[in-house]
Amino acid sequence: MTEDAQMKIRLPRVLKERIEAAATAANRSWNGEIVQRLEASFQGQVTGLPPTPLHQLEEELADLQEKFGKVMSELQAVRGQVGEIDTRTQHLLPGRKKG
């Protein structure tokens, strides 16, 4: 039978309250919640979320940057069209003469 080690720790009250709430939500003891979170941290995982490989995040970032570039190009085209319409319709405004 494996013997569990015991230790006494100090932690901020707010963190203790968060651990208590998380343990209750997960239907675990406080100790079980702390052990689960520590084990996950050593595995490089965030509790409750699947691990996301860095290359996947880099691909998503590149995709978003490409989409952003397209949106900016479209915005520039629309600005050009608005400028052209503005130029063509200046004579229609009150007090303006045909140029």
Rank of each mutant, 00 (worst) to 15 (best):
V71K: 11
H91S: 10
E66T: 14
T2R: 07
L57W: 00
K8Q: 07
A21V: 04
T87P: 00
V78F: 05
S41L: 14
E39N: 04
N31P: 01
D86L: 08
Q6W: 06
T52L: 13
N31C: 06
G32V: 07
Q90N: 02
R28M: 13
S41K: 10
R37K: 04
T52W: 04
E58Q: 14
Q90I: 14
P12V: 06
T24L: 10
A26F: 13
V82M: 04
Q43C: 05
L11Q: 01
E59M: 11
W30V: 14
L64D: 05
R13L: 12
P12M: 09
Q90V: 04
G83C: 04
A26G: 03
Q81N: 10
H55D: 05
G83E: 07
K8A: 05
E84S: 13
I9A: 11
L61M: 09
A77H: 07
N27P: 02
Q76I: 09
I85C: 09
S29P: 09
E74R: 12
S73G: 08
E84V: 11
I34R: 01
I34V: 15
P53R: 13
D86M: 14
Q45E: 04
R96T: 15
K16F: 11
G80L: 02
L93G: 08
L57R: 10
V71H: 03
R28S: 02
R18K: 15
R88V: 06
R13G: 01
D4M: 08
G44V: 12
L38N: 09
T89S: 01
D63L: 15
